[in-house]
Design a protein around this nucleic acid. Structure first.
Lengths: 239, 239
DNA sequence: AATCCCAAAAATGTTGACATTTTTTATGAT
DNA sequence: ATCATAAAAAATGTCAACATTTTTGGGATT
């Protein structure tokens, strides 16, 4: 029996682990999270503890903990005595996610207009500028998903409300990333979205919570409608 | 060595476990959840795995799972290599919780006005009637917390949005119950609240999402202000 | 008396084995 | 052939032991 070698190097290395030598369970959570978001683990497929443990060369203890965390992130659906399965993103579920996002993130925008520091607002402006630059350079009318996330994440953190922050970043955005990643189109933000980002940032800069909230609500509602139409078309074209 | 007897009877029996012979980990989650809500486990106190396992006569495996779940419920704060502690309800945190609740539950009210069945609306009316009756009988101007939760839970479930439902019922309401339970006053809903419940129910009955949303937003914002004033007074009186 | 350092103790992290339940598969009856 | 049933296989649930890290506490030094 070889002496136990804790700390297994995960196949997919998570990008964010600066100082805290995180536990194996946390690393597993990140590995599985990314595998689910990218579709490497198919929607509806089972997370077999036995197979995954063997595959990743870890024991089932930390693996079970990781699955519990994924459950809390809404990424897997767990049934006692039957195991966990990757969540399935039906059209209805995606629209529900966007309704929840609209409610939370519009409030986050209002709070950001109150609580963000000047430095943070400067940073927000820089992110929008970067998006504009990206759009020009790519000569297309779309910006990268990463750039879009950066803007929304900055704003959400600016709300300084840890409950809203947790609900959005830990439980809703993973699902949105998963949906976008696995959608046919890699493109995400349109030209309209860039304009809306500018308007929202301006409202925050003016310290106008109501305006920021309204703009954000419309921004997300519009995105929801775009998805709704696109998915309806896809379903229709399958006949 | 006695033969292992799985399925330990928990000290605090959870009320809701009809058919699914839930696992030990789930039972532990409910037991600890209630202990935290009631204050039996003090805010900021540590959940020592060793001691709790011994105390509840279970092994650390299921206990750790339960703690992971409590983490997802925002009831404990966990730091790797240091363990979990019961969340501390500072004034600022409570107000953040109410902001998140306002955003989510106002949307839930709007959706309930669209998605609730006639039978469900009838049930909602019955719950409000029960509150009115309770208020008369007790000859006071307050109704029980349970009665208040029943109304809000019915409405939230009526939204038919599982994301909002999960966020409110599994992550926010436990904290609100904890706060109310450990507050000096056992009384919760005022006479105003009853009137507001009637108005919200009426808006849903009329299938008016915007009105239901607005009424709910005010209902929760008012509750937030009441708490804010009361807590400010308490802090001030400690000087 | 205060501070630093190191060993002992206790707590958390991880593992492999055993218990129980669910799923699969083979067998037999209708 | 189809369905039901039961044994076998595999998966999930639980436990106790070991590994590693953090905390504790005593003693030496300043």
């Amino acid at each position: 029996m070889s002496q136990p070698s804790y700390r297994v190097d995960p196949g997919i290395q998570s990008l964010d682990m600066p100082s805290t030598t995180s536990s194996l369970a946390v690393e597993l959570t990140n590995t599985l999270r990314d595998a689910i978001i990218t579709g490497e683990m198919a929607q509806g497929s089972k997370l077999s503890e036995t197979k995954l443990a063997q595959q990743l060369d870890v024991s089932r203890g930390p693996l079970r903990e990781a699955i519990r965390r994924l459950e809390g992130m809404n990424l897997v659906h767990y049934i006692p005595q039957q195991g966990a399965r990757v969540v399935e993103l039906s059209v209805g579920f995606i629209l529900q996610i966007y309704d929840a996002r609209e409610a939370l993130e519009s409030k986050a925008a209002a709070l950001a207009a109150i609580n963000m520091s000047s430095q943070e607002i400067d940073e927000l402006n820089r992110l929008v500028d970067a998006q504009a630059k990206q759009m020009k350079e790519n000569s297309g009318s779309f910006v990268s998903a990463e750039s879009d996330y950066a803007f929304h994440e900055m704003l959400i953190r600016g709300s300084k409300n840890q409950v809203i922050e947790h609900a959005l970043l830990e439980e809703i955005y993973h699902l949105i990333k998963m949906f976008r990643y696995q959608s046919d189109t890699a493109r995400t933000s349109s030209n309209n979205a860039l304009i809306e980002h500018r308007q929202i940032t301006y409202a925050i800069e003016q310290r106008d919570p109501d305006l920021a909230e309204t703009m954000m609500r419309r921004h997300i509602a519009r995105a929801r409608e775009t998805i709704k139409k696109r998915l309806a078309r896809q379903v229709a074209s399958r006949t």
